[in-house]
Computed example of a mutant assay.
Amino acid sequence: MADDSRSSLLAQLVARIAALQSIGDQYHPAGLFPSLRWKKALGYRRPDSNGFFTSLIVFTLREIRAQLPAASQAVVDDIAAKALAVYPLYQSKSGQATYNFYPPRPKQHFPHGYLLHRTRHFAAPDDLDSTSLVYLSNPRSEPENRWLKAKLQAHANTVKGWADTGPRAFRGKKIYSAWFGERMPIDLDASTLSNGMLWAVRTGLPLNEFDADSLAFINWTITSGEYRRRPLAVSAYYATAPLIAYHVGRLLAEADLPPLAEARATLRRDLPALLATASSFMNKILLATTLLRLGEQPAPLLDPAWTLADLEPRSRGLYFCIAPLLNYYPHTRWLARWRLSQIDWECPAHSLALLAEYVALGGQ
């Protein structure tokens, strides 16, 4: 792709993302990026007002800011300023600096629906994913980072409790849990851990035994092939091979971490075949972006004649995260693979941010 064409497409993508940012309506506060909850087989579609996708978009755009045209950099700064203003809505109900998928004060879980928001049963505690993305998209001071590191350790496996899901070989390891809540079970998720470890590496704080065990779990997830064979067992909230590879690849691109050397080699070996057989355009984008991060140059995915109007509909249909509702409780866990029990989330603006990231990293 010629430099002029790349710059033009990036400018169009960033402008469209900015246009999708809410100015405030009955479903979404100003500054938030709208998303959707889906269960298409049941005819379930709800507008969703989580903070997760907004922090993820800010993080993604700030990561590629230097590769954008000057005018688009200013647009990214404006997007970020508006988004940061809504972050406090998702801060812990206790006032501590952890964050929730949904506004916790008052609880607004599964909003704009008919049933799930009526019971506290589905109100999740603050989580590592939402918190790490807030910190990654809006970096904190060293004392704040040290506080969060201690908080993570206090809720980790073997400290707060013991995991009874995930690979048995890791249930006795000091691995960070996906959740901060007191009543939520310990949950080991390789994609969530990759976000958390990306934050941990960027703080510059010394890596400890909790970090080492968490990295070992991420490495095993890839090298064992479980991310392909049983994605729900190793990353319940991102339970597809392209999504898990994307998250681990983002961490691999950050630093040459010896505990992840085998995972790097495995992804380099696996991803060309996964890319060749991927059925959806956006899964191909995730896999190709990961290859680019690993220093490989995949075959072009974009037709030079495509405009934003051609690309935007192709970007739809990516469910970037899921809620396996039956996975949380031992007596229903055996049903968690049942797709009807899983709610999917899609964010159109985030899918466009993924396209911008692919182009900015050298994708064609």
Results as ranks from 00 to 15, higher is better:
196 G>K: 02
55 S>F: 01
299 A>S: 12
139 P>T: 05
256 D>E: 12
258 P>L: 09
113 G>K: 00
344 D>H: 15
39 K>S: 15
238 Y>I: 05
3 D>V: 13
256 D>W: 02
154 A>R: 14
126 D>Q: 07
74 A>W: 02
23 I>D: 10
297 Q>P: 00
182 E>L: 13
344 D>E: 14
308 L>F: 11
98 T>W: 02
356 A>C: 04
135 Y>V: 05
174 K>L: 14
322 I>D: 08
238 Y>L: 08
123 A>G: 14
164 D>N: 10
6 R>P: 02
173 K>M: 11
277 T>A: 11
275 L>A: 08
3 D>L: 14
309 A>K: 15
337 R>K: 13
244 I>G: 01
119 T>M: 13
184 M>D: 12
322 I>Q: 13
82 K>P: 00
182 E>V: 12
49 S>P: 01
338 W>C: 07
210 F>N: 01
304 P>A: 07
338 W>E: 09
64 I>V: 10
316 R>M: 11
230 R>H: 12
335 L>Y: 11
10 L>G: 03
356 A>V: 08
230 R>Y: 12
361 L>Y: 12
1 M>I: 13
354 L>I: 02
123 A>D: 15
121 H>T: 14
17 I>S: 03
282 M>G: 03
196 G>F: 09
204 G>T: 09
94 S>T: 15
117 H>P: 01
186 I>P: 01
336 A>L: 03
64 I>Y: 02
49 S>A: 15
315 S>F: 00
27 Y>I: 00
230 R>V: 10
